[in-house]
Amino acid sequence: MKMIDQYVYAVTKYLPADSREDVGKELRANIEDMLPDEPTEDEVYQVLKKLGSPIKLADEYIPQKRYLIGPGYYDRYIMTLKTVIGICIVVFISLEMISWISNPEITDSLSGYLAGMISGLISAVLEGAIQGALWVTLVFVILEKTGIESGDIPILNKKWSPDELKDMSVQGNNRITRGETVISLFMTVLFTALLYFKPHLIALYLKGESGNTEIFPLFQSDRLRIYIPVILLFTVLQLGMFIGKFMKGYWNRPLSAANAAYNMASCILIAVMLTDKLLFNQEFFTRMALYLNETPKHYMALWENRIIWVILGIFVVIAVWDSIAVWIKGFGKKG
């Protein structure tokens, strides 16, 4: 029966490749032994419910269990790790290059200049790889230890049921492409890296009287540090959603709800930051006003009364549109 096929697949996909076929045959035989000769769908349902979560059952077939990331997650962990580390390296190298272009270090020799640039790039590569590996591993350890994907979530008093078995051949417009998840994660990593490591790059760049480039950062660094823990939390949540989308491959109700909640929380955070007058560098607005031939007072009034709300409105519209579109895609999927 189809439900048995789905269950066997759901169990064996969490096992090492070399044991999947044998375990699949054994498991199928065990299920058939627990059923009458001509079982009804309800009888199959009850047997599978008794066997429990595919992830937990797969764990029983693994003889050695001393691991941080188990075999059930390992292949997807490695694939996700490669993707995220690649994104982080690209982002960190890009930020390092922008930093060098906008504020080059003055040295007495070309060799010193090149040595400084190369060491900076190597440092960026290592930092990007370490950060990517750290956060991906953290999320997968949480998945491994909490059993969230297994369907048994103690904190919600939720038990796995055969209703969560899904046909793996996802059709229709609810499919999640790898491209959209990678782009989404790239933008998140870029935004976080900018604010956490190099917030001074978000600035107004003007040529001074001496010909040198003068930089006026948008943010007050001391005030920005207050928001950094929250921003990092949002990044981890986004990474968790990326992994969830990557592992599922299609939009379902839990993912759609998580996406909507994340969008709503992001809008709240952006609103708080935009309306925090202490967060922004007043010199930035003064220089911007002079550059636009406006008085600083008039430009500040324009920022507070119009520009802030236009920016926030754009974010809200995008968030609402994305939430509704994703919810429509995931509405037909229950598990």
Rank of each mutant, 00 (worst) to 15 (best):
M3L: 14
I4Q: 03
Q6I: 03
Y7W: 09
V8A: 02
A10K: 01
L15W: 07
P16R: 07
D18V: 13
D18F: 14
R20T: 07
D22S: 14
E26R: 13
E32M: 11
D37K: 15
E38H: 14
P39K: 06
E43K: 01
V44E: 09
V44D: 02
L48W: 06
K49S: 02
L51F: 00
L51C: 01
L57I: 06
Y61M: 03
I62D: 03
K65M: 04
Y67D: 00
P71T: 05
M79Y: 03
M79P: 01
T80E: 01
L81P: 00
T83I: 15
V84N: 08
I85E: 10
I87G: 07
I87S: 00
I89G: 05
V91F: 07
I93T: 10
E96T: 12
E96S: 12
W100R: 11
I101S: 08
I101V: 14
N103Q: 15
I106M: 11
S109W: 10
G112E: 12
A115F: 08
G116Q: 09
G116P: 09
S119N: 15
L121V: 15
A124D: 08
A124F: 08
V125Y: 02
E127G: 04
E127F: 09
G128C: 04
A129N: 07
Q131L: 11
Q131Y: 09
G132F: 10
A133Q: 05
A133Y: 10
V136E: 05
V136S: 03
L138P: 09
V139E: 06
F140R: 05
I142V: 14
L143V: 04
K145S: 08
G147N: 06
S150M: 03
G151E: 00
K159Y: 03
S161I: 01
L165K: 06
D167V: 12
Q171R: 13
N173V: 13
N174L: 08
R175H: 13
G179F: 11
E180Q: 13
T181K: 10
F186P: 05
M187R: 12
L194Q: 03
Y196T: 09
P199I: 05
P199Y: 07
A203N: 08
L204N: 03
K207Y: 10
G208T: 14
E209H: 11
P217H: 04
D222I: 04
R223A: 03
Y227D: 04
V236N: 08
L237T: 02
G240M: 12
G244M: 11
G244K: 02
K245V: 07
R253K: 15
L255D: 00
S256T: 12
A257L: 14
A258Q: 09
A258G: 13
A261G: 11
K277D: 15
L279Q: 00
Q282T: 12
Q282V: 00
E283Q: 11
A289F: 08
L290I: 05
Y291K: 14
N293M: 11
K297F: 11
A301M: 14
R306A: 11
R306P: 00
L312S: 06
I314K: 02
I314R: 05
I314S: 09
A319W: 05
D322A: 09
S323H: 04
A325G: 01
A325D: 11
A325P: 02
G330I: 10
K333F: 01
